[in-house]
Design a protein around this nucleic acid. Structure first.
Length: 94
DNA sequence: CATTTGACGCCAA
DNA sequence: TTTGGCGCCAAAT
């Protein structure tokens, strides 16, 4: 059985995000087991950004897009295209 | 092993 | 309301 490190847990959670679902770094960190590890979460995604991981579905708590290796703008467009909507700085599903 | 980095979050002014 | 600064964790160097 795997040791499931924090990094692996985070990647697994992000990978498990459904279409149209958006989570904040803080939420992901909390699901991963460390509510205050949001910083590490962003770093982990940044260094892993694997194709299987829809890291573009993870945004900041402020409702801002945050960053993306391919470009934050593209990230936002991807989210809107998938059916996600950001309203009043919050994530809203269709 | 110690220090810096980083796709962040929240509080104070 | 907006801007600045501090705090936090894990990984990289």
């Amino acid at each position: 059985m795997p040791k499931t490190t924090f990094k692996e847990r985070v990647l697994n959670i992000v990978k498990n995000i459904k279409k149209g679902q958006i989570l904040t770094y803080k939420e992901v960190a909390r699901l991963a087991g460390s509510e205050k590890a949001w910083r590490a979460v962003g770093n982990i995604l940044n260094k892993n950004q694997n194709k299987k991981i829809p890291c573009h579905r993870v945004i900041r708590s402020d409702g801002k897009i945050g960053g993306y290796n391919k470009g934050a703008k593209i990230k936002k467009e991807l989210l809107l295209k998938e059916g996600a909507l950001i309203k009043n700085g919050k994530m809203v599903l269709l």
